[in-house]
């Protein structure tokens, strides 16, 4: 935008920003590959939280380096912060439901300590698996 008057610093910031955006996009791409390739819902939640969040953060930082003084930079800060706060909540809720339902390949689990201690206070809709009185053996 500043044309030939662009200083070395501006070029450097733009370059770093572009590299970060490309890295972020690649990570997000791999995260979506993971959504397809991993075996069950719980494993897929890993792909939907970690590489996805970091990919988005890299894109946000890269965008901020390009925008620099624009007021929109603060919006990007908020996008990053809320992504960090909300992604684990989604993963928790989806994972909890998946474990109570059929979202888990139980044959791929080495141990399942949650299966050994079902939630007696809130057994959920699939009580048939444990029985109503749930006496430990």
């Amino acid at each position: 935008m500043t044309g030939p008057a662009e200083t070395g610093l501006e070029i450097a910031l733009d370059t770093v920003g572009t590299v970060l955006i490309v890295l972020g996009v690649l990570l997000t791409l791999v995260a979506s590959v993971g959504l397809l390739s991993l075996p069950d819902v719980l494993s897929r939640m890993h792909a939907a939280t970690k590489p996805q969040v970091v990919g988005l953060l890299l894109v946000v930082v890269g965008g901020a380096l390009h925008l620099r003084t624009s007021v929109d930079v603060w919006m990007l800060v908020l996008v990053g912060a809320f992504q960090l706060v909300t992604a684990p909540v989604t993963a928790h809720v989806v994972g909890r439901l998946a474990h109570r339902g059929d979202g888990v390949r139980r044959d791929l689990l080495y141990v399942d300590e949650l299966d050994d201690s079902p939630d007696v206070a809130d057994p959920g809709p699939d009580t048939a698996r444990t029985g109503p009185d749930g006496e430990p053996g």
Partner: peptide, 22 residues
Amino acid sequence: SLQVAWQALQAVLPGPPIRSSV
């Protein structure tokens, strides 16, 4: 994130699926 990215790419390859624990 790098670790999960690696595991996601590995899962594309044929072979036994990745094992986990709760």
